[in-house]
């Protein structure tokens, strides 16, 4: 019996046993950097490594984390969702408006509308085969227009009534330490992580991103999978909008502009490939936290404006993408 045993050309490209180093770096590189940054800031800055500050950082970026979660699925299929930013703003305004009719309405309306916009994205991309970039750019503008019409071109700011159940929940803390928004984020990420890595649906998401044609030939329901990820992304945007409305106590119309790009950055920093087929939910969480921690540090250091954060994030993104391309180039090609 002849055998086809793998011979990897070239020495040094791989540790002799187990997972190759390059793969570990790609998977956990962001976590490594986060740890280093946390330690360095803890040593260098007073009051940084306190439960209060860390909770503040984490809760403050909860909405970004939820957007990044939805974005992760989309990017793993090889797509992109530019509509989440305005969709998120629309969700916030709708939640604040609907809060006068009770918490259930404030929850249901944004999820329904934002989910529908996501579904529309999915159908246009998967069935009508439009490019994700253009499709979500169009729905981004559409959602923006919808939000302006709801808020009288931004002149009306709906306020959440005092004493709403969701307001106290959003501002509450488990054991007086962990804010409930952070808890919600963690629960959503665990569910998302299991869905992506441990279910057949998740395998389909990877397969579609790996090679759409191959996936179709292997029997993967490509159109259904793509429709699903954009819907999930829309739902995430809606949920994040609700969270933000009750966090701020009002539907702020300008909040959310350009946040889709932050979500994309966080996902990419977390190790997910923009080309699709490779990525993980936990990485996106780490990516979000890394961006938030950097912002917190910059805010803490006197003399640096918060605008500086964008510069650091930009530089960081380039470094990550550069490292990724280096890592994938070092992949042994047989």
């Amino acid at each position: 019996m002849s055998t086809v045993t793998e011979r990897v050309p070239g020495p040094g490209s791989e540790s002799s046993r187990g997972v190759p180093v390059r793969e570990l770096l790609q998977r956990h590189g962001a976590l490594l950097v986060l740890a280093v940054v946390l330690v360095a800031a803890g040593v260098g800055l007073d009051g940084f490594l306190t439960a209060g500050n860390l909770n503040h950082v984490a809760v403050g970026s909860a909405f970004l984390a939820i957007l990044a979660l939805g974005m992760t699925f989309v990017i793993v299929t090889g797509g992109i969702d530019l509509s989440v930013g305005t969709n998120f703003a629309l969700g916030g305004v709708l939640a604040a408006w609907a809060s006068q009719y009770g918490s259930l309405a404030a929850l249901a309306l944004p999820l329904a509308v934002c989910g529908a916009i996501g579904l529309l994205n999915g159908v246009l991309i998967a069935r009508a085969r439009l490019a994700p970039f253009i499709t979500t750019l169009a729905t981004m503008l559409g959602a923006w227009g919808l939000m302006l019409s709801v808020s009288d071109e931004g002149n009306t700011t709906y306020l959440v009534p005092d004493g709403a159940v969701l307001t106290s929940l959003v501002h509450g803390r488990l054991f007086g330490v962990i804010g409930y928004p952070l808890l919600l984020v963690l629960v959503l990420f665990v569910i998302g992580g299991i869905a992506l890595s441990r279910t057949g649906w998740g395998q389909n998401v990877y397969a579609v991103g790996g090679d759409e044609r191959s996936a179709a030939l292997m029997g993967v329901p490509v159109a259904r999978t793509k429709t699903a990820v954009y819907t999930v992304s829309g739902l995430c945007a809606g949920a994040a909008g609700v969270l933000n409305a009750f966090w701020l106590g009002s539907g702020v119309t300008i909040f959310g502009i350009g946040i889709e790009l932050q979500a994309i950055s966080a996902v990419v920093i977390g190790g997910t490939l923009l080309s699709g087929g490779y990525g993980f939910v936990s990485g996106s969480f780490v990516g979000v936290m890394l961006l938030a921690v950097i912002q917190n540090i910059i805010n803490t250091i006197s003399g640096l404006t918060s605008a500086f954060q964008e510069v650091v994030s930009g530089v960081f993104l380039i470094v990550v993408v550069l490292a990724q391309s280096r890592l994938s180039r070092s992949r042994p090609r047989a």
């Binding site: 990877y206 991103g209 790996g210 090679d211 030939l217 292997m218 490779y278």
Partner: peptide, 12 residues
């Protein structure tokens, strides 16, 4: 069916 160009997913 095994199609002409091996149709699998290299990243998985």
């Amino acid at each position: 069916t095994i199609y002409q160009e091996v149709d699998l997913l290299p990243l998985l």
